[in-house]
Design a protein around this nucleic acid. Structure first.
Lengths: 200, 200
DNA sequence: TCTCCTGATGTCAGATTATGACATCAGGAA
DNA sequence: TTCCTGATGTCATAATCTGACATCAGGAGA
């Protein structure tokens, strides 16, 4: 017989989400989470550097998935296309957690400290994507630009996905957001051309 | 004679920066800052919600400056141009604090919690810029996109400015970063066109 | 089998951040 | 003069996070 119940980390994550839903993020203490999981506060901090981090265990997984997707795109694939394809490929992961994703999103929207953490995770994701692009031969500055554009698409697509009554998958919304972006940039290009030079 | 020395807020900010430089951010406590400023820890938390916030008092000022700059651009100015011009117009503010800006940047780079705060301030700036653009008649999604592009330019320009041995001002680097961006997008457009449709 | 080691967890003490409740008191308003 | 206001102080306390050390089941090797 094992000395401890297995999956301490997951138990902590589940306990945290349950308590956050029941009493709200701010009113649940790390001690609460730990004891619901049958563990100690100290142990919580061994698994998560932060109280916040307990909501972000998926980030490294997602980041690797996307970064690898970009790196492994067929040779010759255009950079932004490699990124959007990799983003779309995460759809099953989100589909499997639609309800979790929604709860988590609400918590993040309601607590600035969680919003901060989310932003830093997205920044890390952008950096990872940029690195993958550089591995494909895209020059550094362009890689960063494309990566950040990709993140903008991802954010927009995620919001659409959460709000979608028809429950279409994330890949669908990534495509839609990408089209939006193309349309916007295309629509604006010509009318500006004249005044471009006037900025000094 | 006044009951208290004036400018408590500024004294706290200066004390904080001095101590952060002397012993590092992590090793100076809020109590340290307060007593160097001749105040109490409790008073510190009346001026700043956070230990972090003491490094970000300029943010609302900067945000207003830029948002107003965008709103007040001559009618007919192209959106991105209005943004870059507003960014460039902050140059004097940065010029007056080159040394402060450098110290602050190092601190932020060295401490994740400060990086988080910086990101959320930039997100707020992007939102404010988008709002100003909407006030100029730019449609919502396009406004956000242009605003985020502007922030990307700003980040890049700021890094150039900090690193610039020739000490050219921020406006110079905003122009340079904007040109980079234009060059990148222009360079990449045509080669991609063929493969665009292949993503499904 | 016996012993030793490892690694996950617990226990305890403590620093630090953050907040609420109430006290103080100079200077201006009435 | 009197009263009020607002900036600050004092005190108490919750909650977050960290370091140091203890425990002990089960596996590795003698």
């Amino acid at each position: 017989m094992a000395r401890w119940k297995p999956n301490a980390r997951e138990r902590l994550e589940q306990a945290a989400l349950a308590l956050f839903s029941e009493r709200g993020y701010a009113r649940t203490t790390v001690g609460d989470i730990a004891s619901r999981a049958g563990l100690t506060e100290r142990t919580f901090f061994r698994y998560f550097t932060d109280k916040r981090e307990v909501l972000f265990s998926g980030s490294p997984v997602l980041e690797k998935l996307i970064a690898d997707g970009v790196a492994d795109a067929p040779p010759g694939t255009a950079p932004l296309e490699a990124v959007t394809a990799a983003l779309g490929a995460t759809a099953p992961m989100f589909e499997a957690r639609r309800s979790f994703a929604k709860k988590r999103r609400l918590l993040i929207a309601a607590h600035a400290e969680l919003g901060e953490r989310e932003l830093i995770k997205l920044a890390s994701l952008a950096a990872a994507v940029a690195k993958s692009l550089e591995g494909r031969g895209v020059a550094g500055p362009a890689a960063s630009l494309v990566a950040e554009t990709g993140i903008a698409i991802f954010k927009s697509a995620f919001e659409r996905w959460v709000a979608d009554d028809e429950q279409r998958d994330l890949a669908h919304h990534v495509r839609a957001s990408t089209r939006d972006l193309e349309r916007i940039t295309a629509r604006r290009r010509s009318p500006w051309t004249k005044s471009r030079r006037s900025y000094a």
